[in-house]
C-alpha cells in the first residue's frame, strides 16, 4: 500500500479532473459516480491485501471536526 506521494507532478491535475467529473451533478449522482469509481479503482488495484489496508485506513481516519 502506498501512502507516500505517488502522483508526483500530476497531483493537481488529478484532483481537478476529479472535481470536473463531479461538476453539474447533484449529490446523489455524485455518490453514484464515487461508487463506480471505487469499484473500478479496486479492480485496477486488484490486490485484496492492499485493498483491505486501504479500507482500514480510510475507515479509521477521523471525520472533520467542527
Amino acid at each position: 500500500m502506498i501512502l507516500k506521494d505517488n502522483l508526483g507532478p500530476d497531483g493537481d491535475a488529478f484532483y481537478n479532473a476529479l472535481m470536473d467529473a463531479h461538476e453539474g451533478r447533484d449529490e446523489s449522482e455524485s455518490h453514484a459516480l464515487n461508487a463506480r469509481l471505487v469499484l473500478m479503482m479496486a479492480n485496477q488495484i486488484g490486490d485484496l491485501e492492499v485493498l483491505r489496508s486501504l479500507l482500514e485506513i480510510a475507515a479509521a481516519t477521523p471525520q472533520k471536526q467542527d
Binding site: 455518490h31 453514484a32 461508487a35 463506480r36 471505487v38 469499484l39 473500478m40
Partner: peptide, 13 residues
Amino acid sequence: PIEALFRDEVLNL
C-alpha cells in the same frame, strides 16, 4: 441506502 447504491452501480457497470 449506501449498500443499495453500490449494488446498483455494480449492476450498472
